[in-house]
Design a protein around this nucleic acid. Structure first.
Lengths: 232, 232
DNA sequence: TGTACATCAGTGAACGCGCGTTCACTGATGTAC
DNA sequence: TGTACATCAGTGAACGCGCGTTCACTGATGTAC
């Protein structure tokens, strides 16, 4: 059991480091080290979410994985719920980064839809825990987290609505209709995200099919938009 | 506190009925009474799901609400996970009933889309707990339940695919494309279901807007299908 | 129909465990002079 | 630069609690004769 591997985390879990000497070997100010621990709590929780819901993860478990004593958790968050809300923020970052990149690609060249789905796939692959957290807790058991995600997704829809209004500049689309179309795209893509995550880790041969289907769904929506006539 | 209201359940929670005399006052066979308790366990769990996830509900809590001792739970299910899988079955029933009714309406008359959304709204209103369970646990923390829901939704998609194949009889749609469109409709409608549930219980004035948006989304998809040309 | 025995849904005591939270503390880091 | 004091991230013991699960049981219901 006491194998010497280079990773201090794994070693510390077997042979605790009560005084935190390893952590405090002169790197950074106290504030910086506090921030480091905070990030560790967030990261650890995100990893634990992989096959369970936030509601079933205990404060003690998170503290244990982060290498601190349970009571030290309270130096960073008042409760797991509060950590959860922080996680929403953390997880929206890659999503926002994604739409920024998709937007850039849009101006440049080629098939908008193929590019968009490629960017989606790339970001989901790059931040699986963040995306899984969002999809899993979107309708999950913790009210504060659910509401926080709903708010962020609403902002996200607004963003996409603005983008769509540029694409439909010539046609007489109302804001409501644009939002409706944006909402449909996001519903569709959130479904794709979870399918993608499940496929990535247990049926990699399905990934291509899922991406192709995602492209087709977006194309179908765009086609529909082409034929749309606003009604009262 | 010891108020006399007519409901035996509420009374029993305050003044337990250890020997189960109330339950056993000569109604039904032993097997029938067992089935009754089983249904009570299922129903109680479905109610507890309203604002929490299945993973955070304890066996003892369910037993308590159902009016039995924790150990008696095992006469019906080996674990909460097993009860969860049973709940999927139970919850799919109103959904299947819904599609059957939507299909009937389709043959009869009027605007298919308006009718479909009306049927959806009616069933969601009639079985809020069942629908909430499905949407919440679809990507929730319990693997067995998640897989069970995925399987059922796949069957559901197949059903809808068959329906769509009738509607597109003239055009040259491949099965893959039909499935893709069916999947898109289901993604969209599952999103609507949760919005609807949240609105029903805390912003009833939004319900109309949500239903209208659902109609528009379906219409957009149908429009897209009209313009679709199959590709390899 | 009556009797003797089998079945089994529900009981209740008991267990060890991990939980969230309190509290007084330690000692390295930060700050004021 | 050196010293005295304040701050505060992390410690560790302790608490009461609800949990899932075991076990031997009870007594009404069901069955065989």
């Amino acid at each position: 059991m006491p194998v010497t591997d280079g990773r201090s985390r794994a070693r510390r879990r077997e042979q605790p480091d009560p005084a935190g000497v390893l952590e405090r070997s002169g790197v950074g100010s106290r504030a910086e080290r506090k921030e480091l621990t905070r990030q560790k709590l967030v990261g650890v929780t995100l990893r634990l979410i992989a096959d369970r819901s936030l509601a079933s993860i205990s404060l003690r478990e998170v503290a244990r994985e982060a290498g601190i004593v349970p009571t030290a958790f309270y130096r960073h968050f008042a409760s797991m719920d509060e950590l959860g809300v922080e996680l929403v923020d953390e997880s929206m970052r890659p999503l926002r980064q994604m739409i920024r990149e998709a937007r850039r690609g849009r101006v440049a060249h080629g098939d908008i839809i193929v590019d968009t789905v490629a960017v989606l796939a790339k970001h989901v692959r790059g931040h699986p825990d963040h995306f899984r957290f969002l999809v899993r807790e979107r309708y999950g058991g913790i009210g504060a987290v659910r509401r926080s995600i709903a708010t962020e997704l609403r902002l996200f829809t607004s963003d996409l609505t603005v983008d769509l209004s540029r694409l439909t500049a010539g046609l007489d689309w109302s804001t409501d209709d644009l939002e409706m179309a944006a909402g449909l795209m996001i519903s569709a893509m959130l479904g794709v995200v979870m399918d993608l995550l499940e496929a990535e880790e247990r049926r990699p041969e399905d990934v291509e099919t899922i991406l192709e289907r995602a492209e087709h769904q977006l194309r179908l929506i765009v086609l529909g938009m082409g034929g749309w006539r606003s009604k009262p």
